[in-house]
């Protein structure tokens, strides 16, 4: 689903890290391609000012590694690779996110009181 409507930034802040890990699970890629993949998935435009600090935090946490591939007449492109710890984090977050969205959807749609069984 692609949409031009911007999602509330609070929602994006909560899901962006796991979404980036999910994009990187498909394979190593560079920052702009990650932003393009998020946009293509319907999350809207994620600006560099949001994306790269997040990538930095994920790198500091050990969930991904970054390396520079050489370019012509310059430093080239920085490519991000998911680490084993990142894969574990993604698997954990994926399950919890599914549970979270099920609960919140049920709550918002009025089919539950929001109290976990």
């Amino acid at each position: 689903m692609a949409t031009d409507d911007a999602w509330p930034s609070d929602w994006l802040r909560g899901v962006l890290a796991v979404a980036v890990l999910a994009v990187l699970e498909r394979g190593a890629t560079h920052g702009y391609a990650i932003a393009a993949a998020l946009s293509e998935a319907g999350l809207g435009t994620v600006k560099g000012g949001t994306l790269y600090p997040l990538l930095g935090r994920l790198e500091t946490a050990g969930h991904l590694q970054a390396e520079w591939l050489p370019g012509e007449g310059g430093p080239g492109r920085k490519v991000y690779v998911l680490t084993a710890a990142g894969r574990r984090q993604l698997a954990d977050q994926r399950d919890r996110w599914a549970e979270f969205t099920t609960l919140t959807t049920a709550l918002i749609s009025g089919s539950t009181t929001g109290v976990r069984p």
Partner: peptide, 20 residues
């Protein structure tokens, strides 16, 4: 700085537009 440069080249955006 190299990351900013690569992003600007790839997107064609102005720096303040992309990074605030």
């Amino acid at each position: 700085l190299a990351t900013i440069e690569a992003h600007l080249v790839a997107t064609g955006q102005r720096v303040a537009e992309a990074f605030g």
